[in-house]
Nucleic acid binder design. Sequence first.
DNA 1: GACGTAGGTCCTATGGAGGCC
DNA 2: TGGCCTCCATAGGACCTACGT
Lengths: 356, 356
Amino acid sequence: MAHGRVTMADVAKLAEVSTTAVSLVLNNRQGTRLSEDAAARVRAAAEQLGYRPNLTARTLSTQKSHVLGFISDQVTTDRLASGLIRGALQEAKRHGHVLFIAETESGPGAVDEAVDALTDRQVDGIIYAATRPHNLPVPARVGATPVVMLNAVSDDVPTAVLPDESEGARSIVDLLLNAGHTENVVIIGRSLDQPADEWLTVTVQRRLDGIWSALDSHGVHPIAQVPCEPWSVRNGYQAVHDLLRAGIVPKALICLNDRLAFGAYRALQEAHLRPGRDIAIVSFDDDEIAVYLDPMLTTVAAPSEEMGALAVRLLLDDSRLPGEHLVHMPLRVRGSVPLPRDIEIEDPAVEPNWTR
Amino acid sequence: MAHGRVTMADVAKLAEVSTTAVSLVLNNRQGTRLSEDAAARVRAAAEQLGYRPNLTARTLSTQKSHVLGFISDQVTTDRLASGLIRGALQEAKRHGHVLFIAETESGPGAVDEAVDALTDRQVDGIIYAATRPHNLPVPARVGATPVVMLNAVSDDVPTAVLPDESEGARSIVDLLLNAGHTENVVIIGRSLDQPADEWLTVTVQRRLDGIWSALDSHGVHPIAQVPCEPWSVRNGYQAVHDLLRAGIVPKALICLNDRLAFGAYRALQEAHLRPGRDIAIVSFDDDEIAVYLDPMLTTVAAPSEEMGALAVRLLLDDSRLPGEHLVHMPLRVRGSVPLPRDIEIEDPAVEPNWTR
DNA sequence: GACGTAGGTCCTATGGAGGCC
DNA sequence: TGGCCTCCATAGGACCTACGT
């Protein structure tokens, strides 16, 4: 009885009422009014005993666990995935929920396993996140559990949260061009005439669309597009290195992510070209390394925390809206694009202070 | 009944046995043998209906949830925290457990809240992790729930998992000195005569002890120690920059973490000194940026995944051993230390391929 | 108006009932 | 009469709630 935890029965006994009364009072049920006296006794007893409801038992009877599941192909390997989780975590907490985390990197059957592990525990909903936003199949075994796709889309699930890539791409390229860097523009990462392949995800496609739409509306034609995959530091270096050897000297560089930009910096500096002075550089994602570069990288950020939070809100909202929910990608205007006087740097970009 | 989920009762009905029998068969209970015939019918029925046990109900009756809680001050902000989680996640999965994640960055009451949220849900144990390994107080409200400290220590909890800093420090400094870089050694990050402050955590202390123990046993005396906190890229740059201005030219640099080393590279290159040729550099943690540097950084890695996994094992092991469990810190021998012919580079350090 | 009884959520654990040789 | 095998009824576990007094 009074062995392990304090139960409702203990509270009831001390307050000299039934467990029903305890339940009603502690859950602030309105309709059925207990006497204020009894209610007060119950509250006092609960307080005195340090009573905490057993959420396992509550789940069993209400069929609501107040737990959400978060499935991801890579839980915390990169900045993006981390942000998604952090955002989801904080929003879930605000709503009195808690998060199960499951990873599916380990193989094909892993998704099924993860879904089972979560549904067996009666999660109220599942967030299915990805770091590479493909059309992900969602196993049928989710059954009636609501699912929201995060940074991914699926034919099996109507609700998805994605970064607003095309708007983001347009805004960063606009920034570049409006600052006057319209000559010798080069795109690093993917060329327009590449055939569709596994790299051409929803978001990459839109990123490209946004870039070209901005270029077109300014009447600008790039002098080169260098495809390279994966978008690694090494490949960024190689691309720019090769370009320079071929006698092509860019004055404005659009890198498809920050790692490519990082590599580009190195190749440029080797050739005694100064990023932010001799050449303007813009990029995507606002990776951790963006502020480690010198000058710091002007980039458009993946709004990962907002995306994670939105996914939770959609999941908890009964009127879960179907469709794609696009999240604004904020500009990080820093030193890699020389600006005319009248455009201000909005983000001083202090190096983050988490240092161990 | 046969409304939402499939329950044991459904299986029992189909197999024409009692729910008790279903329970016994499906849990492979030994002692009380049912007829092979009945057992087969039960298994067939379960299979046919796609029965999955309701773990919430099971938890209620067994008082074991097969869920662990992971509390951390910073869930996924940096590489270390991510590794801890990943390791814990995978090990938990191997044992059929699942992980609740809770973050306490948001403020002082957050730890209490997190502990309540977890114990209310009857987690089998709690991992309390930190990115800065201080003596963390553990709230008394954990009650009887087992706790293991991860990358942290606490007077309230006997079991802790820590990196073996002193051994790791000794091994990386040995590497440096054995390679012949015993002249003009400089330590960046902390000097020995600094008064104790909030930066002097358990692990930092041991890191320093290891460094000095290795230096002493080689009879080497550094020509300078530059204290700087936090250990940021900026401060690493500043430290080396100031050093050079003062006319002190190091030939061997011991940086207390990779971010400092990153800054040091930049200051050195500005002065036309070449890391890995004119100067040897070693460092700690094997942060993401270590392989982005050129040459890549020789460092000793924080074994975060192993630590996370070990914490889970300790938590699930009934004979949870009290005391500190030290995890080996592996060397990452790369290009920043020029090596004589007879020492081999053991780790080619390919840039990781996760690229979005 | 103020409160309690009883039945429901699903699973596990225990003691003991029935059948057969 | 006993012993053994096969199986089940029942009583929790902690909570919620429709109905009844």
